[in-house]
Design a protein around this nucleic acid. Structure first.
Length: 474
RNA sequence: GGGCCCGUAGGGUAGCUUGGUCGAUCCUUUUAGCUUUGGGAGCUAGAGACUCCAGUUCAAAUCUGGGCGGGCCCA
């Protein structure tokens, strides 16, 4: 049974690199570090993820827009913390044609500073609020560290939603809705996750607070898939985004943003994949069912017809199937579609036709069974559902087994994955723990939890205010 | 910012120490034809590489210097 050269549970990072290449997701040979070419299958997968995001946006009344890639320096510099946070990783445009520009332009690292001057023009009255927009675009960040396909890149495929509200409370409602969106989306992708309220020193530049969406990769490192930010009026003041109330007063808006990136794809690869290749959750699999005709001389037509009929029936039930009638051996096709992560494979050959059966093979478990042709559609629907469930359950089990709530740094040291320690609220204590554990502070759980108050901070011994999570991160 | 390593077909490799036997090995890939098809089929005939520039030399994939590209470690 041919498998990847590197095994997922032995050398995850090498395995990941191998899979990305084998499955035709991206080409890292483009001669700029961290700027990879999206190959057809990778782009298709990303588009399927984006489609799910668009669906969620539609359901929650967000409008899709597209803002320019270039931002003038003067707009970028209106909010001080924001510049400090992003300044060092911005690409600058200094020349156009043969002229040096009077004012430099930058490639968006994120779009606040492009959008907000326009919001200021658009929003006049309380009736214009809430404003809820989003875009799916490429953003640029000059990474100096090691890059990794879909996980740390310089040109980032990025979803960003921006909202404006009448007051803090309404913005808080948006944060809640964003959390629900993340939950629905990641459930579809069969990915368990955690929300963390980022510590003060690590929140988004300019935000009032930041909630991160993190998943745990099989290597034991966490990967931040996205974040939800409450800006309060931190941006609306410098960008003058205000509205007139019913009473005729002028108030500043309260704003939120919600961003996620191509890291979702990185997580899908890492969390569900195995040594045979990708395993795609049915919700985002471009092909959910692949049908392999087993052809013998003289019976080609009969078999191919049966495949096409089944494919049509599946289409009627909105199940995406593909009949692979390439002139290569069936074994090759099996490996091919396993590598691509198609959740369910169906084999139809002359023997099956005689018995009025088809053969189903699950990608995740390899389980193989014959079912009667009459009941096939129902069985396929059920199987796809079962695959989703078991992908989620396995990933959830891994996450649960690798989240540890402990009281001392000593205990924390021996744990793989994410640890939660009682924390007094003092930055220095958390930073010291980071040092000892050689990891990063993820943040505190967003759910209220009184239990930690029983314990004390392992560094200074003062009473704990909250749990604080630490992990090695990507 | 400091240190280290690497560069041979699309991918993976051998050759480099000690220059000549290299008209560059093997696997994979790929083109055409025949034959096959229930887990990567076979045969025949083809295709495809020494990162670039300069130097040393009778002779450079191999030695020297530089450029470009890639990677790692430390701060």
């Amino acid at each position: 049974m041919p498998e990847t050269k590197y095994k997922k549970d032995e050398d995850f990072n090498e395995w990941y690199n191998e899979i990305v290449e084998l499955a035709d997701l991206c080409d890292k040979r483009y001669p700029i570090k961290g700027m990879n070419v999206w190959r057809p299958y990778g782009w298709k997968l990303m588009n399927h993820v984006d489609r799910q995001i668009r669906e969620e946006m539609e359901k929650t009344n967000h409008q899709e827009v597209y803002f320019p890639l270039l931002i003038p320096e003067s707009l970028f510099k209106k909010e001080e913390e924001h510049i400090e946070g992003f300044g060092s990783e911005v690409y600058w445009i200094t020349h156009a044609g043969t002229n040096e520009l009077e004012e430099r332009w930058l490639l968006r690292p994120t779009s606040e500073t492009a959008m907000y001057p326009m919001f200021s023009i658009w929003i006049r009255s309380h009736a214009d609020l809430p404003l809820k927009i989003f875009q799916i675009v490429n953003t640029f960040r000059y990474e100096t560290k090691q890059t990794r396909a879909f996980i740390r890149v310089r040109e980032i495929h990025f979803f960003e939603a921006h909202t404006c509200h009448v007051d803090f409370e309404d913005a808080e409602k948006q944060v809640k809705e964003d959390r629900e969106i993340a939950d629905r989306l990641l459930k579809k992708l069969c990915m368990p996750y955690i929300f963390c309220k980022r510590p003060e020193w690590d929140k988004f530049a300019g935000a009032f607070y930041t909630i991160s969406i993190d998943v745990l990769m099989p290597s034991g490192r966490t990967l931040q898939l996205g974040s939800i930010h409450q800006y309060q009026d931190n941006f609306s003041k410098p960008y003058e985004i205000s509205y007139e109330t019913e009473g005729g007063e002028h108030n500043y808006c309260h704003q939120t943003t919600y961003g996620m990136s191509e890291r979702i794809l990185g997580a899908l690869i890492g969390i569900h994949g195995d040594n045979k290749g990708l395993v795609m959750p049915p919700a985002v699999a471009p092909t959910q069912v692949v049908i392999i005709p087993i052809i013998f001389k003289g019976k080609e037509k009969e078999v191919l017809d049966a495949c096409e009929i089944l494919s049509k029936k599946l289409a009627e039930k909105n199940i995406k199937s593909h009949v692979d009638n390439r002139d290569i051996s069936p074994g090759t096709k099996y490996y091919d579609w396993e590598l691509k992560g198609v959740p369910l494979r169906i084999e139809i050959g002359p023997r099956d036709l005689d018995k009025k059966e088809i053969i189903l093979v699950r990608r995740d478990t390899g389980e193989k069974k014959s079912v009667s042709q009459d009941a096939s559609i129902e069985t396929i629907t059920v199987e796809l559902d079962n695959i989703s469930k078991s992908l989620y359950e396995n990933a959830k089990k891994f996450l649960d087994e690798n989240m540890h709530r402990v009281q001392s740094v000593e205990e924390a040291k021996n744990k793989k994955g994410i640890v939660e320690l009682p924390w007094c609220g003092n930055d220095d204590c958390a930073l010291e723990i980071e040092n000892i554990l050689d990891g990063n502070t993820l943040g505190e759980p967003i759910e209220d939890d009184e239990e930690c108050k029983k314990y004390s901070c392992p560094m200074c011994g003062k009473p704990a205010e909250t749990w604080m999570r630490f992990a090695k991160t990507y």
